[in-house]
Design a protein around this nucleic acid. Sequence first.
DNA 1: TCATTAACACGGG
DNA 2: CCCGTGTTAATGA
Length: 213
Amino acid sequence: METKNQSLLKQQFENIFENALIQDIIATGIVKTFSENTIVVDIGDPMPYMPILLSGSIKIMREDNDDNELLLYYLEVGDTCAMTINCSMGKQKSNIRAITEVATLLVFVPIQKLEEWMIQYHSWRHFILESYNSRLMEALEAVDSLAFYSLEDRLHKYLKDKAMVTGATLLKTTHLQIANDLNSSRVVISRLLKKLQLDKKINVQRNEIEVFF
DNA sequence: TCATTAACACGGG
DNA sequence: CCCGTGTTAATGA
């Protein structure tokens, strides 16, 4: 692992992991960079590694039998994907698709280490359980959103979430992409965006949307 | 009632 | 010309 990435890893995790664990991650982890809008893991892929986010952000998508996509939640720095925990335990293939939202740095840890460290390191155990829990909560939020919210509220929440993970209030995206993420149609998104703009919640221009907070 | 699909016009790059 | 966007009309849940 490069020194630059090592110091980033230390910086991000020194308050969470004990030093010995960080050294172990450096020794066994493989760091990879992904440019924005790249598929990191696809549905059906085997997952022999567990990814931990060093920088950037990733959206986790679900897909039904008719290729309809739906955004489940975002991963941010310090997060890991709970799906890989599932996969590693039961030797399953991925049930989700992971796409980078911006340029992203990931460290991949072999799943065999994941189990060893569960026994060896208290902080690792805590990290796994904690992230498992928060991913479950986010998935529940996604379900709530589908079941109880109007599409307009979902759209507004989607834009705010996206602004959060990208760290910018100006989003570079199109109505069609949004429609795909929310599993809706472009016509409706265009109409609702206009409505949100009239309500002074956002400002819409070609290829970009500004979110107000 | 509200979403979806299809179809068309407009404008910018 | 292609793509993103605005809008409408017909249809569906």
